[in-house]
Amino acid sequence: MVRFFGFLVGLGFVGVAAWSLLWGVIAYVSEPPAETVEHRFHLHPEHVDFSFEGPLGRYDRQQLQRGFQVYKEVCAACHGLNQVAFRNLADLGYSEAEVRAIADQWQIQVPSINPETGEPAGRNPIPADRFPDPYPNETAARAANNNAFPPDLSLMAKAREGGAHYIHSLLIGYRNPPAELPEANRPGQGLYYNPYFANLNIAMPPPLTADGQVTYADGTPATINQMSTDVSAFLNWAAEPKLESRHQGGLVILIFLIFATILAYLSYRNIWAAAKRNVRATGPLDPANIARRQAAEREAGIEG
């Protein structure tokens, strides 16, 4: 009974799927799907050698400080960093006093109240505060940015395919639209062509426009490429601040586990030592078994 009904149900699903397939094939043959414009012009992020990549990667503190400087002077006017607190900047190698000064002099105030009147007011951030948002809400952000919403950058390096590489490519990827780009996909009013962006046209004006736009405290020449790489590294830190302890802890734990597993293997072999002589793995993946099985099949085939 089960098999009879199973047969009917099976025929049903196979039939309907085949029916869908038939129409799919007809549609595919009659009008083959055209390559989309995004597919044709979109570029994958370029690879940059970041110090934090690889199983033992670490952040370059100097680079993070430079990247923070770029964020502060170029990005922070429009983009928030609201998962990161000023106190976290100590990770970049800033002293406690420097962190306090950075927080106190930050260009955006933390929403607060006037202690006398209770009216909304602002105060200077303290290290315990997270970076204040540049706009009070999304509507205000859109109103100030030609109806585009500058996203928060705290997790940008984890929220996009390609991570820091994507951010770097996007920042240096602005160019004139190619001549063969269809009219419908050309950047409209207030949009800029950028092949690394998902739909090719981004509302953010090119943020890094000239070498020397930022004067680095450590004297590194601030080329556009340098600034873009640095800020990408900084945003990777902002998204994954625990990367170094993860890599180091992981290595220690991995070594421990390998050691423990070797011991477990020796113990397993030891316990099975006597029984093992008589026990052979009979799994289907054992090459010896496969060979025997094939031989047996040949034999069975001849006899049958």
Binding site: L263, A264, L266, N270, A274, A275, N278
Partner: peptide
Amino acid sequence: TVEHHEATAPAGEDGLRRRDFINIAAVSV
């Protein structure tokens, strides 16, 4: 199987002790 184990394993004292050590080490780790 237990009998089998005893029958086939050489009776050497040191051998048994070394083998127990591996098991104890594995469990301890």
